[in-house]
Write a protein that binds this DNA or RNA. Structure first.
Lengths: 233, 233
DNA sequence: CACAGCCTTACTTTTACCTTACTTTTTTGC
DNA sequence: GCAAAAAAGTAAGGTAAAAGTAAGGCTGTG
């Protein structure tokens, strides 16, 4: 199983013991995670989530100014990021409060480095499996890492906008993505007046990924609703 | 947190101890899971996955004709369904083999029923949170995320108006929705003079979702009041 | 039997999207 | 910093699918 694409996810670690922070950070860096943020309190944790927007939070249950559970509850008011709890005491009551709140996993100290890593991978994999760097379409494959389309032996480069467009569609594999959502992904806060430009991009993308751009089989328009990307498993 | 939508997921339980199968099945049924399949060996497990296509597998590590790990490895050759291991001995080595293979979680016996449930929810939520909402009707299912009807193996696309119409009805499943409400959902602020057009849509929708459009069983008219959508299950 | 309310079907209109060529903007290489 | 190339955006005419319209036909009710 190739998990390397998960290593560029940003991890947030909240614990008040400096040695533990250091140890875990070391384990994670060794493994290849290059994007680790730490915090030592509930307060710091909250602002770290808001400012850094990590992809996964690993929270100690015991914190100086509260506990990991209340930190998580506060998080949940504005984010549904995955959360793993870390705790000194392996008590059933604690496990249940954490999992009951909707945590994704729970690890009791002391833990083996390998177990921590595996659990992190398991959670990340499930949460971000759509971020895989490759997808297969009917007559071609898209390599998001390289921003390339491979079709009939040829390699066709994708432009920036095309890349975002396809990524947005790929993230909700097969389901309809509205024009509004796409415009927002492409043009940000003020995504108005670009509908026509979107059309032009659709055409150009079809020329790259479809065998017959005028009769698309992968990038499908759903009149009045949006577009969808048919992936081939 | 509302997890009820996860309770119609199909669970596969593989264990060779009848009492444990029975106990876990009882826990799950009590909780509201209505779709539980069991198997007692690696061989049975494999064929259960192929025939029943469950959404989650809960595997005992010890099985008469092999172990849960090899069962999982065989599964992985044709499915990436989520897997939770269940084991008598809580040994680190076991945990690591399971998680290392890409299992989603690992529960040591004896476990608290609550913990089992929470971990099942955590895994299901993670894996199916983006599931498109869909509903089952008498002879077909409607996939709203894809705007498609699946009937007798065929996939029939829904148009924008049909989509809104069905969504409006589905939202108050089974109850009567007035013509006024429907018109407002379809034509917004000034929903007058469209009653006839609504009729036409009703007909077209029935052609898509009913076995016999002239004798509807799902999309029912309630004379003088409106329409209702009979859902199954 | 007459009427109301809905069904059915064929037909017309409309709208959302396609297509293409062209213009403007951004990026790249020298 | 400039010119060339690439990417992105704009505009206009075309088209087919979707929506709307209308007319005649059922069916149950008073």
């Amino acid at each position: 199983m190739d998990n390397t694409f998960l290593q560029n996810k940003k991890l947030l670690l909240v614990d008040d013991e400096p040695e533990l922070l250091e140890m875990v950070t070391a384990i994670l860096s060794d493994e290849g995670f290059g994007n680790i943020v730490t915090a030592v309190s509930v307060k710091e944790g909250i602002s770290a989530v808001q400012n850094e927007k990590p992809d996964l939070a690993i929270l100690d249950v015991m914190l100086p100014d509260g506990d990991g559970f209340s930190l998580m509850q506060q998080l949940r008011t504005f984010s549904d990021m995955p959360v793993i709890f870390l705790t000194a005491k392996d008590e059933a009551a604690d496990r249940l409060s954490g999992l009951g709140l909707g945590a994704d996993d729970y690890i009791a100290k002391p833990f083996l480095p390998q177990e921590l890593l595996f659990r992190i991978y398991a959670v990340l994999r499930r949460c971000y499996k759509e971020d895989t760097p490759f997808i297969n379409l009917d007559g071609c494959t898209i390599d998001f890492g390289r921003a390339e389309v491979h079709k009939a032996g040829k390699t066709i480069p994708l432009t920036a906008k095309e890349h975002i467009f396809l990524e947005t569609l790929a993230r909700s594999e097969g389901r309809i993505v509205t024009v509004d959502t796409l415009c927002e992904a492409l043009w940000g806060d003020n995504p108005f007046g670009y509908e026509n430009s979107l059309n032009a991009h659709v055409r150009r993308i079809r020329e790259k990924i479809e065998a017959d751009p005028s009769n698309p089989v992968s990038l499908i328009t759903v009149k009045g609703l949006g577009y969808k990307l048919n992936t081939r498993k």
